[in-house]
Design a protein around this nucleic acid. Structure first.
Lengths: 200, 200
DNA sequence: ACTCCGTTTGACAATATTGTCAACAAAAGT
DNA sequence: ACTTTTGTTGACAATATTGTCAAACGGAGT
């Protein structure tokens, strides 16, 4: 018999932290957001730090698994890149504040996150980087440091999502529809950019 | 007779907040970092919020001014883009955590930052966007929503800087030199990407 | 020497936030 | 019916952080 409340608090905490972006939420806020008594947060997770760590690890693990699966999947290179774009988009839209937290944490000296992030540095990434290198030799994509291909991909997809509220401010994009129109043409555009400005 | 301490606290706060990335620094931490008594922070700036707001506004204003100057400067389009890349790089390397803070704040409902960010939405940007549109018609750069050109530029330059510690983790880039090697080829690469994959 | 001024300090009170605990409620097992 | 376990609550103590204030300091001007 699983405890519903425990899972419920976890799910709501995920949303509060990484979707809504209240990274410094107090236990009271977390409890309110989950609609439970504050003490329950401590009852199930001992401390706020612990809850945060659990929630964070879960999301990172999920992400890592999905990326790894794409890296080694049995499809063409181009299809892999498309899958990466799609998944990155979906993931970033779900948890736009995860990276924000990552960056802040990594900056702090006393970060124990290394242990969580470190295994991201996995063989699947290496495998895919080799594939990128081959494509560069074939001339399918421009030849640079292979890592820069991935950095470009991440940057062109993630940044606009994470920065959405900022971009809307500085470019005076008043309606959500306007931003969507601008954003919708990005996937195709990014594919074109990555693949040597050659369509299909 | 200017007060040195006031300016000194402000400068150190800038570094602590937006370079080191301790956005949630306590007044004690700020004071320690500036090497002064904690009470002085309140003496000169009334409250922590106020200090933060002053510091933040100063940086934003500086950035805005510089961007605007580039947008309307009397050089070729290509040179403007180069100047934008250079300044963005320099600025982000100086204050990598400014955007992080922006994003977090914009997410909070009670943000008074609008008033600071809003004027970023200035005529100079509009002017440059028109210039981008013309270049697209000329075929110098790929034709998309003009804003996407700027978004691409910002993304390709800013994201790798802001994400540097993360990228080093997930790509296992152990030494600073390694990252520099990868990063150094980016400016030229970004120019090539933006200008239709055509060199010069 | 004295006074005035801006500057600096330590001590204080107000507040917020944390984790714990003992008591209570509800469900499950006997 | 009872006991045991699990879940839930309010109250509490410990801690951290804030802003204020009165007092001390130090130099410039008289």
């Amino acid at each position: 018999m699983e405890c519903l409340t425990e899972e419920h608090i976890k799910q709501r905490a995920k949303v509060l932290f990484f979707t809504t972006g209240i990274l410094d939420a107090s236990t009271q806020e977390i409890a309110d957001f989950a609609g439970v008594n504050r003490t329950l947060v401590n009852y199930y997770f001992r401390s706020k730090k612990n809850l945060f760590h659990i929630v964070y690890t879960e999301i990172i693990t999920e992400m890592r698994t999905n990326f790894a699966a794409i890296y080694v999947s049995n499809v063409t290179f181009r299809e892999k890149v498309e899958a990466l774009i799609d998944y990155t988009t979906e993931f970033r839209e779900t948890y736009p504040f995860l990276e924000i937290f990552n960056i802040q944490e990594t900056s702090k000296l006393n970060n124990r996150l290394e242990t969580v992030l470190r295994p991201t540095c996995m063989e699947e990434t290496g495998f895919f980087l080799k594939e990128i290198e081959e494509e560069m030799k074939k001339g399918t994509i421009p030849a640079y440091e292979p890592i820069n291909f991935l950095i470009n991909l991440m940057s062109l997809i993630s940044f606009p999502i994470v920065m959405k509220p900022i971009f809307r401010e500085i470019f005076c994009i008043s309606t959500e529809e306007q931003y969507q129109r601008i954003y919708n043409q990005r996937k195709e555009m990014v594919m074109t950019i990555l693949f040597n400005n050659v369509n299909q």
